[in-house]
């Protein structure tokens, strides 16, 4: 059992300290995952809080045999953000909302950006990848695309989704290791 497993076990018996530690470990990632879809700081924060309320209420339903705790959180965050993005309220607010945050950040010319700017860290990570990798990673981890849906949208065979995703993430990992 690693540290996360112990904290999750404690969360299931409603240990507030364990819950606080898990919040500290994952809130930034979950907020980011929501923001990829919502692209609004205040709304993303609200949704992130609601996701953690749900984590507390539904912790009994998490089953390690069905996947990683992070995957469970990510899935809840994606669903909450997508539900909100389909609301009328959101649609009227977001006229200039770019559909794909990763791709739009990737396509910004480097000359126009300065260090410390919004999404600077993300931009530097994505710039190490090819466009097709950025698209695929955003679809599989931060949108609700299945392998099949991603294959259709990118017009590539189903098997290629798996191998391309592996190569893209591997490339990113190796580059970050050398940083």
């Amino acid at each position: 059992m690693d540290k996360t497993d112990i904290l999750v076990a404690q969360l299931k018996v409603k240990d507030v300290d364990a819950f606080e530690q898990l919040h500290h470990m994952y809130a930034k990632n979950i907020l980011g995952a929501i923001n990829v879809i919502i692209q609004d700081e205040a709304i993303s924060k609200e949704i992130c809080q609601d996701v953690f309320v749900k984590v507390w209420e539904k912790s009994q339903l998490y089953d390690a045999a069905k996947g990683r705790f992070f995957t469970w959180l990510l899935n809840m965050a994606r669903n909450a953000a997508i539900d909100y993005s389909r609301s009328k309220e959101f649609k009227t607010q977001k006229k200039n909302h770019s559909l794909d945050l990763f791709v739009s950040i990737y396509e910004q010319p480097t000359d126009n950006t300065t260090s410390g700017e919004k999404y600077d860290g993300l931009r530097r990570m994505l710039k190490q990848l090819k466009r097709k990798c950025v698209e695929l990673i955003e679809m599989l981890y931060f949108k609700d695309y299945t392998q099949k849906m991603a294959a259709e949208r990118l017009s590539i065979p189903l098997g290629t989704v798996k191998s391309r995703n592996r190569n893209c993430l591997k490339h990113l990992r190796e580059n970050l290791k050398n940083d």
Binding site: H23, A27, E41, Q49, K118, Y141, L169, L172
Partner: peptide, 25 residues
């Protein structure tokens, strides 16, 4: 870890709002 890092870089504000979560609960 790499997916978590990508996600964290897409977050724009601090998340030290655990008390807000508790209030909501």
């Amino acid at each position: 870890q790499i997916v978590m890092r990508l996600a964290a870089e897409a977050s724009v504000s601090d998340t030290e709002d655990f008390n807000e979560v508790l209030k909501k609960i």
